[in-house]
């Protein structure tokens, strides 16, 4: 090698590293995630970069899917079945829900396949494995932002102004992220052991979409069943998006507070359980994968 070794004063050699069989009790070791934040950054960056590089259509491709879905849903549910959407134009009503839903479905899919897709990293380099599903959930945010710009365009076109509640949007995105991560952790870890999880996933996502008020509004559901609907955390996300963006023109413009709180609780529980299960199986990933 040419130059002289460079010293890094603020990177002192780490203290002695101990490797021992882990005890039965598993700690989440979230501090290690922080130590590896740069790797997380690079993995997200890689995912985003490769996704936009590989397709000739690039950004257009990212927009095609939600737009196509919106058109189909508008024809099918908006015109033929005349699903009530309050005073909001149905395309906007559907798109505001498709936005977080597509993010969630895509993230769940990517997270579920993430460990198996990164086998070469897992069997060769050490890092907290949590970084992999987390990076797949984060990289989907780029698509969300792009689709969001389109949504703003649609709102302008239909002349619908967002309410002041628009500042709540990041909270709903965060809820979608936590939900996707919570379920994604389960799927990713299960997928390492049982490869048919990947085949079940598209079917699961399809069913899940119809269980979530994407093509219809939760106001269509009788009042007494609504909290049941909220057991699905994506209900809170989707209704939250509609409320924040289209609040003015919805039939029921009250904030979905109860819905949201139930959704947050459920998704946090799923995330915690997912983290524990993931950490518990993590040590055998390299042996099983």
């Amino acid at each position: 090698m040419t130059g002289s070794p460079i010293s890094y004063p603020d990177n002192p050699p780490p203290p002695t590293l101990l490797i021992e069989p882990s005890s039965r009790r598993v700690s989440l070791q979230l501090d290690r995630l922080w130590a590896y934040r740069e790797l997380l950054y690079f993995l997200v960056w890689r995912d985003v970069k490769v996704r936009y590089k590989q397709t000739a259509l690039g950004i257009l491709w990212i927009l095609l899917q939600p737009v196509a879905s919106m058109i189909i849903f508008t024809l099918l549910f908006g015109y033929l079945l005349a699903v009530p959407s309050g005073d909001a134009p149905y395309p906007l009503f559907a798109f505001a829900a498709l936005l977080p839903w597509n993010y969630f479905a895509g993230s769940l899919h990517r997270a579920g396949a993430s460990l198996v897709g990164n086998t070469n990293l897992i069997t060769r380099v050490y890092f907290p494995r949590l970084i992999i599903p987390i990076s797949s959930v984060l990289s989907g945010l780029a698509d969300l932002v792009i689709a969001f710009v389109l949504l703003l365009g649609l709102m302008l076109y239909f002349g619908v102004m967002p309410t002041a509640a628009v500042w709540w949007l990041p909270a709903f995105v965060l809820l979608a992220l936590i939900t996707a991560l919570g379920f994604g952790l389960w799927l990713a870890a299960l997928n390492v052991r049982y490869r048919d999880v990947n085949h079940i996933l598209p079917f699961l996502v399809q069913l899940w979409m119809y269980a979530t008020p994407v093509v219809y509004g939760s106001s269509l559901i009788p009042e007494r069943f609504r909290l049941l609907l909220a057991l699905n955390p994506m209900t809170g996300v989707v209704e939250g998006f509609r409320w924040a963006l289209l609040g003015r023109v919805l039939a029921d413009a009250r904030p979905p507070t109860a819905l949201f709180l139930v959704s947050v609780t459920i998704s946090l529980l799923v995330l915690l359980a997912g983290l524990i299960y993931f950490r518990h199986t993590e040590r055998t990933f390299a042996d099983v994968i």
Binding site: L18, I19, E20, P21, S22, I122, T123, R124, V125, Y126, R283, A286, D287
Partner: peptide, 8 residues
């Protein structure tokens, strides 16, 4: 990458 069963 993988954990030992015994030792340190």
């Amino acid at each position: 990458i993988t954990e030992p069963t015994r030792g340190r």
